[in-house]
Structure formats: structure tokens, C-alpha cells
């Protein structure tokens, strides 16, 4: 007997829940390739969804940044485990979203899982690598250690729907930041599936919040939001990102610019091995002076 098709509803991921957009809007997502095919309806997030996501992210900062680095590493590794378990699903989604053959998509998904696991090893090592015992001219221990910046807004890469996404989310949350992500506009489906992975893997609700929708509509609200402490403009290559940077400057946010310059901004090759820069971008340095005694 023929089975009824069980279709998936792609919703937002905010505060550990999967709400529909407050606006009630949705938009059609189609596959990439010569003959685009309807894939699903995605929620078209609004500025109020961004606002709610920031509230959720702010609420999660204390618990996530307060967890021990060792614990954060374990939780992130657990995400890697569940990503691995959903490998086939992600291969199908990436293949459809990015117009790749199955072997190409497999390579991308494997790289994305490996990337996540690589970052999962970093939480307890960052303070060791970036922290320091500073030489000072006085009887003090002078210790510097990295601290998370707080709430990070992320414009996810437009082309690389999973590898690029993982490459911007993971480095931000490693150190204890929480994030609000605006996904790739045309390829949002793997991001929501990643949300499902996060929701089932001990990552506290609100640490990662994912909003799908029109990047040009949502980005200015995220960039100007005073309760966001930093913004990653990786997915703003097609937008006048200088204006977003200017809006972010009003509240002195840390800004990560897209690769390349001005109108020539491009997405980097996400397959290349990452360095520490996306982790260090969202850190503050805390320095403690402690009397040494005689």
C-alpha cells in the first residue's frame, strides 16, 4: 500500500523551542540546479523574531558562559555525535540545497562534522593558549584570561548551507557566547535540521537561536540591536555591509567583516582548515592583579 508522504515543517529555533514566525509568514525554498524543485516552506522570520531570539540568547549567557569549559567541550562533542547519526539526512539536504552530487555533498557534510568536533576540543584549551601570566614590575601575579563577549549575532554564509554555518556558529559558542543566527536566505533547511540536533544534545535552550528569512530585512535589526555585543557579517557579501557595520558601531559591537573588500566581498573556501581567528574575535580579556606577598 502506498504511504502518505510525511512532510516536514521547517520552523525557527528560538530559546530551545521551534516556533513559527511571529509574523505568520513563510517562503518557498527551492533546490539549486538547472531545474529548481520545490523543497519546503520555511518560516519567514520578522524583526520581532529577531528580538525574541536576542532575549533568549541573553537569558542563556549566564548558564552557558558559567558552565565549566570542560563541560562545554563535552556538550559540543555530543552535538558532533548526533550530527554523525543524522549524516544521511544532512547529505540529502545539502545535496538538494546546494545542487551537489551525493559524493560532493558527503564530502561537505563530513567536513562539517569534523569541523564541529575540531571546535568541540577547544573550550578548555582556549584559556591555556590565549591566557597568560604577565610579567609586571611589582609584587603581583598578573593573569590574563579570555572571557566570552556575550550575545553574538551571526549572518550565516549564503552559499555554504551547512559547512559554512557550522564554521561560524561553533567558534562563537565555544568560549561561552550565545548566538542569534540569520541563516542563508535561499538555503535555510540544513540550518533548521542543525537546530534539531542542538535541541537534542544537551546544548541549553537559547545558546543557539536560528532565524530563517530575508537577510536584507532582518540584518539591520540584528546589527542595530543594543543587546547584541558582536556581529559576524560572513553572510552579508551581497548586502551593503558597511551600513551594517556602521549600525553595529552605534553600540560599539565587535564586528567580523566578510572576506574581501567592499563590493568584492566573497565567501571564503570553508573547506580550508580554520585558524583561531573566529574564536578570538568574540573574546574579551580579563586581567587579574593578585598580590604575591613577600
Amino acid at each position: 500500500m502506498a504511504r502518505l508522504e510525511v512532510r516536514k515543517t521547517y520552523k525557527l529555533y528560538i530559546g530551545g523551542k521551534f516556533p513559527r514566525s511571529e509574523s505568520g509568514r513563510s517562503y518557498e525554498v527551492v533546490s539549486t540546479g538547472r531545474s529548481p524543485k520545490f523543497l519546503a516552506n520555511a518560516a519567514q522570520g520578522s524583526r520581532k523574531d529577531i528580538r525574541d531570539a536576542v532575549v533568549a540568547a541573553r537569558g542563556a549567557v549566564k548558564g552557558w558562559s558559567g558552565a565549566t569549559a570542560y563541560n562545554r567541550g563535552q556538550v559540543l562533542y555530543r552535538v558532533g555525535e548526533i550530527l554523525e547519526g543524522r549524516r544521511e539526512q544532512f547529505i540529502a539536504e545539502v545535496s538538494a540545497s546546494e545542487g551537489l552530487t551525493k559524493p560532493q555533498a558527503t564530502k561537505i557534510v563530513d567536513a562539517a562534522i569534523d569541523r564541529w568536533v575540531w571546535y568541540a576540543g577547544w573550550p578548555d584549551k582556549l584559556p591555556q593558549v590565549l591566557g597568560n601570566l604577565n610579567p609586571v614590575a611589582g609584587p603581583y601575579f598578573d593573569i590574563s584570561a579570555p572571557e566570552p563577549t556575550g550575545v553574538v549575532g551571526i549572518l550565516a554564509p549564503q552559499a555554504s548551507s551547512l559547512l559554512g554555518l557550522v564554521s561560524v556558529i561553533a567558534p562563537a559558542i565555544v568560549s561561552g557566547n550565545t548566538v542569534v543566527v540569520i541563516t542563508s536566505e535561499d538555503r535555510p533547511l540544513p540550518a533548521i535540521s542543525l537546530g534539531e540536533v542542538l535541541a537534542t544534545s544537551d546544548v541549553p535552550g537559547g545558546v543557539v537561536n536560528i532565524v530563517t528569512g530575508r537577510t536584507a530585512e532582518l540584518a539591520p535589526w540584528l546589527a542595530s540591536h543594543a543587546d547584541v555585543n558582536a556581529i559576524d557579517l560572513a553572510g552579508a557579501t551581497e548586502l551593503p555591509w558597511g551600513e551594517l557595520e556602521a549600525a553595529a558601531a552605534d553600540t560599539v559591537k565587535r564586528v567580523v567583516r566578510p572576506a574581501g573588500d567592499g563590493a568584492d566581498a566573497v565567501e571564503p573556501d570553508w573547506l580550508e582548515a580554520p585558524d583561531l581567528s573566529r574564536m578570538t574575535a568574540f573574546l574579551e580579556t580579563k586581567t587579574v592583579w593578585h598580590p604575591k606577598g613577600l
Partner: peptide
């Protein structure tokens, strides 16, 4: 009130 005045969402730091 700040949101209405400035047009951007405000935060608890302000």
C-alpha cells in the same frame, strides 16, 4: 521607549 525614540532595539545595558 528607547526603541521608539531611536528605532533600534535597546538592551539592559542601556
Amino acid at each position: 521607549r528607547q526603541k521608539l525614540r531611536t528605532g533600534a532595539y535597546s538592551g539592559a545595558d542601556y
